[in-house]
């Protein structure tokens, strides 16, 4: 069974790596979105490996179900060009500076992760949805209420921003 877990981890890592490279390098935004969805499915597989099936389900429901559809709407509403929005490639200077900006935090964080390893439990324990619900309505009640307020405000703000008065045009 341990071998199976290792194989699954490698497969999900490859899916995440391939999807994320596709998502940042593709010249067509719709293809980049497909890369993003591949990555999201890979991360949900990682959640399954960590014995958190509820998080995997929420990942599929919220990200793959809702956020990717929102991004697809954004692509359609901005009249994406057929030849790809990222057609002419960036100048070399932007590329080098972007790579440096990526490598600086990656180097520091990678060095910390590799040199100060934390002892980890071999088999993670699955906690039930009941406990999560008890946590939401008990200890973490305030953030639970605040996130609903934030979602309400975001929804109202989005409607207000794109509002057009009738007969204005």
């Amino acid at each position: 069974m341990e071998l199976m877990a290792k194989v699954a981890f490698c497969v999900y890592t490859l899916v995440i790596l391939g999807g994320s490279i596709f998502a940042v390098s593709s010249s067509s935004l719709v293809r980049a979105l497909v890369g993003l969805i591949t990555t999201l499915v890979g991360v949900s597989g990682m959640y399954l490996l960590l014995a958190t099936p509820f998080m995997a389900f929420m990942q599929l429901l919220i990200y793959v179900g809702a956020v990717s559809v929102l991004i697809f709407f954004a692509i359609m509403l901005t009249r994406a060009e057929a030849g790809g929005d990222e057609g002419n490639s960036a100048p070399m200077r932007t590329y080098v500076l972007g790579l440096a900006a990526t490598m600086a935090p990656a180097g520091i964080l990678g060095w910390l992760v590799l040199t100060k390893p934390v002892e980890s439990i071999a088999v993670p324990v699955e906690i039930s949805i009941k406990e999560l619900g008890a946590g939401l309505l008990g200890t973490y009640f305030l953030p639970f209420e605040l996130i609903s307020v934030i979602l309400m405000v975001a929804m109202a703000g989005a409607v207000l921003l794109t509002w057009e008065k009738r007969g204005k045009k």
């Binding site: 990555t39 954004a74 929005d85 990222e86 900006a101």
Partner: peptide
């Protein structure tokens, strides 16, 4: 994932592409 997102955020020239990188 953080590296891919950061790199995409600096390279993308459309707002939707930057949103995709932030989600990563």
């Amino acid at each position: 994932l953080l590296c891919a997102g950061l790199f995409g955020l600096t390279q993308r020239r459309s707002l939707v592409g930057m949103l995709i990188s932030v989600e990563l």
